[in-house]
Nucleic acid binder design. Structure first.
Length: 352
DNA sequence: AAATCGTGGAG
DNA sequence: TCTCCAAGATT
């Protein structure tokens, strides 16, 4: 690391002085309960602060402590997570608090090696909990920190690459405030969120612009270096809307993979005929197409569902495991991906 | 190392 | 409208 000439102590002072006067009043900053820090950090992964706030408030009312979350049903936890995305976060968090309950008597460990073994806690979250809740001088390198430091220290490594994070962690260990690692880490992230933004960074308001090598070179807009994401892959999807005596057929998705454990309308990747075949094979339902009800497109990070929704007339009906006939008024007891929430709302006759 | 895993907001 | 992307972890 090339920190020659970098005024570390002055940087720490400038950064912390600014943070103490500009930190946002966020619900997970009311105290330093490691559990709350933990939940907030998981929710904040790849998710905006404004989106997280209402979820965090509700989650804490429902699961105020580690033991309350550990004893909860996974389906209830997923329900609280509904709409937030990346649902494995909720599953891992639930598994994680159970680990803490069993292995650490319900207390979040304060050692890197131990906390890193907990499900769902990776290098960033470990460092965040250790520094924010326990005052340990550990790096917490997220996207903000990499963006800010890439500019301050003029680091041109591609932040999409896996090994790059380690270089930033090494840099943080050189410059972190041992007196206040909690504020230091939070300040770097706050600076990235409020001032040192991805596009059009507000350098005129930056408390540490005097330390910024990229600004000195006039290349702050070109950093950090980041490879382009590849476009989502289109997927033709046929969706079945089965209405029987006011109840519709839903089913639970597998416990692993995309949208794990959430509910959905029966569907196939393929043709309408394949949809009917599937209803017969998987749900023991004989039916015929009544007509196309609607089309809907939903784009994920890596997938694009091109959905066609068909109303289906049920001729014969047998029962099957993992499916439920449910009245529309009872749908709110189940967790649905946003794509199916939209379809269910659009096709709701009482709602239009 | 590169893919997988969601969603809604901003420009 | 479209692209990028926001306090990443897992495999």
């Amino acid at each position: 690391m090339t920190l020659t000439g970098f005024q570390t102590e002055q940087f720490q002072h400038d950064l912390l002085y600014w943070f103490e006067r500009n930190l946002r009043d966020l619900p997970w900053r009311k105290d330093r309960d490691p559990y709350k820090i933990w939940v907030s950090e998981i929710m904040l992964q790849q998710t905006r602060v404004d989106t997280v706030i209402p979820y965090f408030e509700r989650f804490m009312q429902r699961f105020p402590s580690i033991d309350r979350l550990a004893e909860a049903d996974l389906d209830d936890v997923i329900k609280q997570w509904e709409g937030l995305g990346y649902y494995s976060r909720a599953r891992n968090l639930h598994a994680g608090v159970k680990e803490v309950q069993e292995n650490y008597a319900g207390k979040v460990p304060d050692e890197p090696d131990k906390i890193l073994e907990i499900k769902g806690i990776g290098p960033y979250t470990a460092g965040a909990i250790l520094s924010i809740a326990y005052d340990k001088p550990e790096p917490a390198v997220d996207g903000n920190v990499m963006r800010v430091l890439s500019r301050i220290l003029h680091i041109e490594d591609d932040i999409q690459k896996a090994k790059t994070r380690k270089r930033f962690e090494a840099a943080i260990r050189e410059i972190i405030s041992v007196e206040n690692p909690s504020f230091f880490n939070q300040a770097l992230m706050e600076l990235g969120a409020l001032i040192c933004s991805p596009k059009s960074p507000k350098c005129e308001y930056c408390p540490v612009v005097g330390h910024c090598r990229a600004k000195k070179l006039g290349i702050q807009e070109l950093l950090p270096v980041k490879g382009k994401a590849k476009p989502p892959k289109p997927l033709e999807m046929k969706v079945a809307l089965l209405d029987r005596a006011g109840k519709i057929l839903i089913r639970k998705r597998p416990e692993q993979g995309l949208l794990a454990g959430l509910w959905e309308l029966p569907n196939v990747e393929g043709t309408v005929d394949q949809l009917l075949d599937h209803l017969h094979a998987a749900h023991h339902i004989s039916g015929q197409i009544r007509g196309k009800r609607m089309e809907y497109q939903h784009t994920f990070s890596h997938l694009q569902w091109k959905m066609e929704v068909y109303e289906i007339e049920v001729d014969e009906l047998d029962s099957s495991v993992g499916e439920v006939w449910v009245a529309r008024s009872e749908l709110d007891q189940y967790s649905f991906p946003v794509a199916f929430q939209k379809i269910l709302a659009e096709t709701n006759p009482t709602c239009k």
